[in-house]
Simulated scan of single mutants.
Amino acid sequence: MTSADGRAGIDAALVERLIGAQFPQWAGLPVTPVKVDGWDNRTYRLGDDMSVRLPTAEGYVPAVAKENAWLPRLAPQLPLPVPTVLGAGVPGEGYPYPWSVRGWLPGEAADRAPIADMVRFARELAAFIRALQRCDADGGPAAGRHSWYRGASPAFYDHETRRCLNQVDGRVDTKAAGRAWDAALQAEWRGEPVWFHGDVAAGNLLVEGGRLAAVIDFGTSGVGDPACDLVIAWTMFDGASRAAFRDAVGQDDGTWARARGWALWKSLLTLAGNPGPELAAVNHRIIDAVLAEA
């Protein structure tokens, strides 16, 4: 199969065929692309109240079964809506991966929606993260390949991070960044494993009426070290909102040291790829904020 975007040949016509073949009760409902889509998965709106989510590559396939199994167990323990699984699709119509039908969650992603009070938003997000950490972790998927090693030690990305430090030398204070990275590796996780989301980013937070309304995309979730969920302190919050988030979410100094490591890894990796000026400026700001605290 081929497509304009080259991602697993996914388009609205494919989704219509899959629905017609596997979920005939929903055949004939309009299938429309969402306005802003992700890279790991393609998402289409199905009628008014549902969505269809399809992995774009084999590496994202483990998330399908994981979310199908665990989202229904996590949802009752969380203070905000998360995706509801309505159907588990299988390969077909030339599409090679499992896929799912979800309930439609209203709202607009936080990187595009107006937020009425960023300090309140930060506290609401912190409350969600704390609630997620309190969920029963027994039998949950231990951090590893399925979570792209979020929830594991940032040491998994040590070689990559040090390569990136060499590549961006002269553009970033690599001595300070190296010290912060070393501190992240030294602050080993010694607590009981807890649930983490793995990709707490503005694009996965839905806003309605100016407030945090839902959290989506648990594809990198699992059970382990929650430090990866704190990176949003520097990628979205600043000043008073960052202070409010840090105060409300808690966590010990070692967890914050590892969180700084996760933030550095991603921003250094992005800069090493020589992004455009706008994306480069964003990641320079993130690194500056992280190093100011380190």
Results as ranks from 00 to 15, higher is better:
V64D: 00
V172S: 14
D247T: 14
V168C: 07
R190Q: 13
F128A: 01
V34E: 03
P81A: 13
D49C: 14
E278W: 12
W256T: 03
F121R: 05
D5W: 13
V223M: 06
W181V: 02
W39G: 11
A187Q: 05
V34Y: 01
R242K: 13
W262C: 05
I10M: 02
A13C: 08
R162Y: 01
L46V: 09
D247A: 15
R145M: 10
P193I: 07
G9V: 08
R171L: 15
L269W: 14
N41S: 09
V82K: 06
L125R: 00
W262V: 07
V119E: 15
K266R: 15
L18H: 05
Y149D: 13
F156N: 12
P96G: 15
L264D: 03
L86P: 00
F196N: 02
L80C: 08
F245E: 03
Q251F: 11
P30D: 10
T161R: 01
T84R: 15
D288L: 08
M236W: 01
V194C: 11
G107S: 06
L29V: 08
A137S: 13
P81K: 07
P83V: 01
D111S: 01
T32Y: 05
W181T: 02
A12E: 11
F196Y: 06
A259P: 03
G219L: 04
R42H: 14
Y95M: 10
C164P: 02
P106S: 11
R112T: 00
A75V: 04
D37F: 02
H284Y: 13
T220M: 09
P114F: 02
D253A: 14
A122V: 12
L74I: 02
E124F: 11
A155N: 12
L212H: 05
D49K: 15
E208L: 13
G89K: 09
R242W: 06
D136R: 07
D252T: 07
G222P: 06
A137C: 09
R102E: 04
S3D: 10
P114I: 02
R260E: 03
R112C: 01
A177T: 03
G209S: 04
A27Q: 12
T84Y: 03
W256Y: 02
Q22M: 08
P154Q: 09
P277W: 08
L185D: 04
W234E: 02
A27G: 03
G273Q: 11
Y60L: 01
P91T: 13
M1F: 10
H197P: 03
R150K: 14
W262N: 05
A177R: 04
I10L: 04
A116D: 12
V223L: 07
D158H: 13
P91R: 12
R42T: 14
V15Q: 01
N204K: 00
V172L: 12
T270I: 12
P91S: 11
P106K: 06
T56N: 06
R7D: 08
E93I: 10
R42K: 14
Y97N: 08
L165A: 08
R7G: 06
A152S: 15
P83F: 00
Y149R: 10
L78K: 01
N283E: 13
L212C: 07
L165Y: 09
D37L: 01
E124T: 15
P79W: 03
G139V: 06
D49N: 15
A88R: 15
A289L: 11
Q77Y: 05
E93L: 11
R123H: 13
V168L: 08
V85E: 00
V90D: 10
A281R: 10
S267E: 04
A272V: 04
R258W: 07
T220I: 09
V15K: 02
A257M: 12
A113P: 04
